[in-house]
């Protein structure tokens, strides 16, 4: 008999299940791009979930959600991630929060590591604004992994940390304050 794999701690990949027809809404980015998303995917964001609940409680038709602090390119990435994870149990992401050893499933690893560092940072920042725990977990772990084995000089280059004498004088949050 083949040995059982200990997969209890690892998030299971999303599997399509027979469910109610998707409820699609429009989502508008800060720069005016309009995208479409399944409400179940949007519920991964605590921020958007609260807005959607507000509409539902008041029986108001939800035609368009405005996301004022995320640009179109990043919002598209957020929605792609949420669509992939819309069937996930949110408790898994909560349980992984604050853990050092987070396992990143292969789809997410591929999705996140293919992004240039700047886009990855924007995606994590958007996930933070929208309060999407799973995306924050995997994104932060991906950034930490990208620093693995790097020297101070390599980290400066990777994260754009200037030498102390290169500090911009106009910046409000500098590396050397």
């Amino acid at each position: 008999m083949a040995p059982k794999k200990n997969s209890a701690k690892r998030p299971q990949p999303s599997t399509p299940k027979p469910s109610a027809p998707a409820r699609i809404v429009k989502v508008q980015s800060s720069d005016g791009h309009i995208l479409q998303a399944d409400v179940r995917a949007l519920l991964l964001s605590s921020t958007l979930a609260a807005t959607i609940k507000g509409y539902d409680d008041e029986n108001k038709p939800l035609e368009k959600l405005e996301v004022n602090n995320v640009v179109g390119f990043t919002l598209k990435l957020v929605l792609e991630w949420c669509e992939k994870h819309k069937e996930d149990d949110p408790a898994i992401a909560q349980a992984e929060k604050d853990k050092k050893n987070i396992f990143i499933p292969s789809w997410d690893r591929h999705f996140l590591t293919k992004l240039p560092m700047g886009n990855l940072f924007d995606l994590i920042t958007a996930a933070y604004h929208l309060d999407i725990t799973g995306l924050i977990n995997y994104g932060c772990k991906t950034v930490a992994n990208s620093a693995k084995g790097k020297s101070t000089e390599e980290m400066r280059e990777l994260f754009g940390i200037p030498e102390p004498w290169e500090q911009p004088s106009t910046s409000t949050a500098t590396w050397d304050d």
């Binding site: 987070i102 560092m117 933070y128 977990n137 932060c140 772990k141 950034v143 930490a144 992994n145 590396w175």
Partner: peptide, 15 residues
């Protein structure tokens, strides 16, 4: 320009 300071940096450092 990339700004690591804009990230939830505690979570990155934790990992």
């Amino acid at each position: 320009p990339i700004c690591l300071l804009s990230l939830p940096i505690e979570e990155v450092l934790m990992s």
